[in-house]
Computed example of a mutant assay.
Amino acid sequence: MEYKDYYQTLGVAKTASDEDIKKAYRKLVRKYHPDLSKEADAQQKTQEINEAYSVLGDAEKRAAYDELGRGHQYRAGQQFRPPPDWGHGFGGGAGGFRGGDAAGSDFFADLFANLGGTSRRRPQPPRRGEHSHASIVIDVADAYHGATRTVSVMLAERDAQDRIVTRERNLSVSIPAGVTAGQQLRLAGQGQPGAGGPGDLYLEIQFNLQSRYRLEGRDVYQTVPVTPWELALGGEIEVTTPSGKVHVTVPQGSQSGRKLRLRGRGIPGKEAGDLYLLLEVVLPPANSERNRELYQTMAREMAFNPRAGT
């Protein structure tokens, strides 16, 4: 069988800390998320990343894996055969450390099926499966009102022959109002399978930010197109915000880029954020003779140099 270099898969050194491994895993999961990634092999990459983390993210499995490579310079893709007693003493019970508890490739199936020996420890109760991590992309309005969304994730499960296989699952997820970017939603029992039951699935919130929105914590910045006369003359305008339609007053003599603050109109929470409306002038097109004449009249009668003093 071919050797798999899990450290190379996650892009970390063999001396990486548990926290560094977790950070690298989450970064790669976001990079190859099917809703965000443009990579042709995103699905395959996701499977490889999950398999690598199922080993390196578990202290006992990582120790067994490191023991395999100690004193050798195995390379990814290299043909190799593990020593018959390398896994002796790992795992709980006479069956040794079984790779069936992880999302597995043929590497896992062949490698861990051959482990034997007697544990040096007292028997441990069956362990739950590993927790899984993925991302879910939502709209800004979902954070205001809450929503139910369907997310597709690649998760491991046992087939009829009790083998670990990775399949795509569509899960219905309830998005609570007030969620923020980077927050994690826990789906109990939707993680990797294990002898003691499945682990949990953690979904990291990411936003599908259209060009008119920007987020800073619970504060929302929204670009609002306005006409030159609305800026110059001022007055009330209607704006569609993530929480609904509002009427705001544009002060007379405003310039493009002016920021209007609506307190408490950001993402809701114990302390709701604010909504900032960024005024952006949109000029009418000079696409008719009449419109060109109006622009020419403005040029003559309202002539000024906007670049003076710059």
Results as ranks from 00 to 15, higher is better:
L185H: 03
H145C: 00
I205A: 07
N208K: 15
D159N: 15
I136L: 14
I175R: 03
Q210P: 12
S152T: 14
L203C: 07
L201R: 10
V153F: 10
V179N: 06
Q161W: 05
D200N: 13
V140A: 06
Q183S: 10
Q210I: 01
Q206V: 15
Q183D: 08
E204L: 05
V140H: 07
H131S: 08
I136D: 05
H145A: 10
G194E: 09
I138Q: 04
R163I: 00
R186S: 05
L171N: 02
V153G: 05
L155M: 08
S152R: 15
V153S: 04
A177E: 12
I164T: 12
G191E: 07
R149K: 15
R158S: 04
Y202V: 03
T166W: 01
L155Q: 13
T148D: 12
Q161P: 00
A177V: 03
I138Y: 03
S172I: 01
I205Q: 09
D142K: 00
V165L: 01
M154G: 09
I138S: 04
G199D: 10
A195L: 11
T180N: 02
R158F: 13
Q184I: 01
T150R: 13
Y144I: 13
R158K: 14
D139V: 01
L155V: 11
A141E: 14
Q206M: 12
A156C: 13
H145V: 00
G191D: 05
I175T: 08
Q192V: 05
A188Q: 12
N170Y: 03
A188C: 00
D159T: 08
I205R: 06
S132A: 10
H145K: 15
A181M: 09
G189C: 08
S135F: 03
V179Y: 07
P193T: 13
T166F: 05
V151L: 00
P198Q: 09
M154R: 14
H131P: 09
L185Q: 03
V137G: 03
A156M: 10
V137D: 02
I136G: 04
D139L: 02
A177K: 12
S132H: 05
L185A: 05
I136H: 03
E157P: 06
Q190T: 01
A141R: 14
R163E: 12
G199R: 05
P198T: 11
A160C: 00
M154Y: 12
Y202P: 04
L209N: 07
G191W: 08
A181R: 13
R169M: 01
I175Q: 08
G182K: 00
V179D: 02
D162N: 15
R167K: 14
H131Y: 05
P198V: 02
S172A: 13
V173Q: 06
